[in-house]
Amino acid sequence: MLTRRIIPCFDVDRGRVVKGVSFVQLRDAGDPVELARRYEEAGADELVFLDITASAEDRATTYDMVAATAEQVFIPFTVGGGIRTTADMKIMLELGAEKVSINTAAIQDPDLINSGADRFGSQCIVVAIDARRVEGVPGTWEVYSHGGRMPTGLDAVEWAVEAARRGAGELLVTSMDTDGHQQGYDVELLRAISDAVPVPVIASGGAGGPEHMAAALTDGRADAVLAASIFHFGTYSIRQVKEHLAARGIPVRPVPPPEDAP
């Protein structure tokens, strides 16, 4: 049976992992390659690196990180942030990323989704959507670009449908209302998008514990849950999360036993 995926996420700045709290404060949480290896051993199903490196000159540090990760990590990982062209996609995929995630660039040029999917296959094109509830209009969310700083006027569900239609193989849906607060995902947003698109949805923003993940995967109908702080700061292990989900009847890949002694 296909299992629901648990995906630790790393924000990476110049080759180092940091974690944004509500997109503002940053705390250093370590070396990406070591973390990735540790999470593979700990039972993570996939990894996401969001590159927040500001300047183009520093982008080489990201390439080094992706290449080093690919040498040592044998589960799928996605790289997002700063990918604006199919040439950018090609670099990341050739360095060893399984998928690339695009956000602002897809909003500015939706054809980028089509051209990426045509060239590399839908399976490696993730469209990330940052959405915020529209005040006074229940059940409506607006898409924000530029790391959540700029309103776009796009309706999140409509944009999700268009992104999937254009060839996105997966959607990474972040609620800006819940992100960083560890009070749970925006289950209503997840459900609205999951019900509207034929492709898998990754829930993001607001994980405080396994019960939040269970809600995203059941009521929210998400296919995968992404979290950062609760894993990076050791609040919960992947194993604890998976055991909780399994006890709730949600299919998960069991955490592998420790490596056999040589």
Partner: peptide, 27 residues
């Protein structure tokens, strides 16, 4: 959902050298 994306089980239908040490039903 399509694509079929993620970890799923593979059940072996016979013994084969490439599956040695990998239990049937592995992900």
């Amino acid at each position: 959902k399509v694509p079929h994306m993620g970890w799923n089980t593979v059940e072996w239908r016979f013994d084969h050298p490439v599956t040695e040490g990998i239990p049937s039903g592995s992900y």
